Amino acid sequence: MLPELLTLFHVLSGTLCVGAGGIAFLAPKGRPVHRAAGTVFLVSMLATALSGAVIGVLEPARLLITAFAGLLAAYLVLTGWRTARWRTGRPGGFEWVALVAILAGTAGLATLAVLALQTETGRLLGFAGEDYAMLAMMSALGAVADLTLLIRGPLSPRHRIARHLWRMGLAFFIAVGSFFTGPGARVFPEALRESGLLSLPEGLTALLILLFLVRTLFKRSRRDPGAAS
Rank of each mutant, 00 (worst) to 15 (best):
T79H: 00
E95K: 08
T83Q: 08
L103D: 05
G89K: 13
W86D: 15
W81L: 01
T119M: 01
V97G: 08
T88G: 00
L109W: 07
A84C: 01
A101E: 03
L109C: 09
I102E: 09
L109G: 06
G92E: 12
T79L: 05
G105P: 02
A84G: 10
A98I: 06
T119A: 02
A101C: 14
A84H: 10
G105W: 05
W86T: 01
Q118S: 14
P91Y: 02
T111H: 12
G108P: 05
A98L: 02
G108Y: 05
T119R: 12
R85K: 11
P91G: 05
W81Y: 15
L112I: 00
W96V: 14
R87A: 11
G105C: 06
L115D: 02
P91K: 01
G108N: 10
G105E: 02
L112F: 13
R82P: 11
T111N: 07
Q118K: 07
W86R: 10
R85M: 03
V97R: 12
F94T: 11
A84W: 02
T88A: 14
A104C: 10
A104S: 10
A104I: 15
W81R: 07
L103M: 12
E95T: 12
A101P: 00
L115P: 00
R82F: 05
I102W: 04
V97A: 15
T88I: 00
G93N: 07
L99V: 11
A98S: 13
T119Q: 14
R82N: 11
A110V: 05
R82T: 04
G80M: 06
T88P: 03
L99N: 11
T83K: 06
P91T: 05
V77A: 03
V100K: 09
L78Y: 01
G89Q: 10
E95G: 05
P91F: 02
L112Y: 07
R85E: 07
T88E: 14
L115G: 01
W86V: 01
A104D: 04
T88Q: 12
L117V: 00
L109I: 10
A107G: 07
L115H: 03
V114H: 10
T119G: 14
V114D: 07
G105R: 08
G108V: 09
L99F: 14
W96T: 12
R87P: 02
A113Y: 08
W81V: 00
L115F: 02
G93I: 04
A113H: 09
L103P: 01
L103A: 15
T83M: 09
L112E: 09
L117I: 00
R85W: 03
W86S: 14
G108C: 10
G89V: 08
T111V: 01
E95D: 13
A107I: 13
F94E: 10
A113N: 06
A104T: 12
T106F: 12
A84E: 10
W96I: 13
L99H: 10
A113P: 11
L117E: 13
T79W: 00
A104Y: 07
A84L: 14
R87K: 15
G92A: 13
V114T: 07
W96P: 04
W81M: 04
T106I: 01
L99R: 11
I102K: 05
L78E: 02
T88C: 02
R87G: 09
W96Y: 13
A98C: 04
R82E: 12
T79E: 05
L117D: 11
V97P: 02
A107N: 02
G108L: 11
A98P: 06
G80L: 06
W96F: 12
G93Q: 05
